[in-house]
Design a protein around this nucleic acid. Sequence first.
DNA 1: CTGAAAGCGCTTACAG
DNA 2: CTGAAAGCGCTTACAG
Lengths: 337, 337
Amino acid sequence: MSTITDVARVAGVSVATVSRALRGLDRVSPQTRRRVLEVAEQLHYVASPTATSLASGRTRVVAVVAPFLTRWFFATLVSAIEKELRAHGHHVILFDLEDDTYDQRLPLTQNMLWKRVDGVISLNVPMTDDEVALIDRLGLPLVAIGSAVPGRPCVRIDDRATMRTAVEHLIDLGHRRIGYIGDVPRNVAHVETPQTRLTAFRETMEAAGLPVVEDWVLGSDWTAEAAAADSARLLCTDHRPTAIVAASDEMAIGVRESARRLDLEVPRDLSVIGIDDYVLSEVLGLTTVRQDVAEQGREASRLLLRALSDPADTSGPSDLVMPTVLVVRDSTGPAPA
Amino acid sequence: MSTITDVARVAGVSVATVSRALRGLDRVSPQTRRRVLEVAEQLHYVASPTATSLASGRTRVVAVVAPFLTRWFFATLVSAIEKELRAHGHHVILFDLEDDTYDQRLPLTQNMLWKRVDGVISLNVPMTDDEVALIDRLGLPLVAIGSAVPGRPCVRIDDRATMRTAVEHLIDLGHRRIGYIGDVPRNVAHVETPQTRLTAFRETMEAAGLPVVEDWVLGSDWTAEAAAADSARLLCTDHRPTAIVAASDEMAIGVRESARRLDLEVPRDLSVIGIDDYVLSEVLGLTTVRQDVAEQGREASRLLLRALSDPADTSGPSDLVMPTVLVVRDSTGPAPA
DNA sequence: CTGAAAGCGCTTACAG
DNA sequence: CTGAAAGCGCTTACAG
């Protein structure tokens, strides 16, 4: 492969001129520029990003940090971010922070970031103080999605309002006995969405004058499988709710499936609502409160790109709250008389 | 942030010695090494990967190339690969080649790879001749998953045997009228799995002396939604199969859902089987032929790592075929009398 | 508008 | 065992 020196030699100019011509800087005569472009093309010249980075101090790479990657929400974000950034000349280096157990994750380290990336997008991972300090020390811009990081821009939905929408939909349908799934049993430092949504559930119930039956607040690891198993224990008793709100569609699907196995008809015997509008929710006819996940990824990318192009520009929004909308399908219906 | 020069100065040695000591090379006295390590630690020194790459010619970064990222299969692979590679000091830069329409994808370019990565893992994307030539020219090792690339190691399942297992399961249950979903209408250059599986379906039917009814071979874009819509048109007629084999679980889920809506009971009125063991398949009780996707990602990573550590070592397998296994759940049953 | 030269922060023969 | 120096391939003031 050819280097900038080859191009300079063949074009009969200095490497400095090649560098300027190729990057579209001014102060290069049109003829020279044309000549350089021709030669570069002909030699299949592509600047070595590693050399460019060393000299310029910029890598044009962004770290995308996720607590899991296999789950739909995160995969959707990563895909959207990668496309948006690549369309603007940046690449994505991926960090899957999932650890062996659900209640902990790997830490972000200097080795992952230092001179390797120009910025960071965190997907729903609340940063520890040490991590924020690290990113500060490295002088990297950071945009958060989902879980806000103090002092940094964040793209998210309003979790409380979203949960309220879900619960109120059930209340509007006449439900009074409402269960919940999505509590996270242990104190997990790396996801805060579960806490927020559960709190919003309690608040909404209270505001409506409805009791929260603690036996109907189910823990789960947020997978459909666990939700099916956990809810089965509740649904097989007579003392059960007429509706369940799940903190995610994947869990809602699990709940509905376990109802089905127990010969409970949805929504006649049990209404189920989730949050997300997961990829399978439409086909499965699940009522949900939809969020546009890909758009959140794109917005976060744009915010980061702006911070990269002009570090001084702090005019952008520091908290971008995206709308969510109730989508009524077949899994919710009037409360039984 | 400190550089190698800082460490050298504080430790009172040359940068060459720091470099050797930190990388664990021999020819450094124990005392000196200890001293250097101490100073490096104390200064929070981490070598600049960009400088290291320029000097050594290695980036310790691997390109992972996928045709889609939002789909479970690919997200699962990426997650497994990222973890395996990172455990061995390598990072993943991600390329989502999805384009606006389903029947084309973005090309792999020199700009994505040159001096940016040490190797490539392709996820079920058949390479064009140009792309293979590019990778050759750049001297990069390549490991393929799913769709083989001529002359390069590949990790995959036996698509034909896997499909045969699915079809024979239905035949064993007494089904004679068997439909198929997962044909890809146009000539899509970037996925070959659909072709292989459809061919295997035809072969298996023929071998069993069963007719392939062309009206029962359905096209689809491999999403659950499209599968639901496409199969609904077939299932609402009287002239319909007693079983449908789907080329993926996601499509099988769509088919089963559309059966449900048409008040066909699964498996009494219609048996449905898929391939994959998708994340929701167990909870939805779907019969399938399981493949271990994450393990394929890990194996591919190991193969690439080996090629990176010793380019001359060609002793490894060039075609690693992973087993698949029939998992019978609730969506298949005896053919109606 | 163009070039010579320093510098980015490492690694790697080459001497000693 | 250790160091001085060249080199990796660019970018960026500084002169002209």
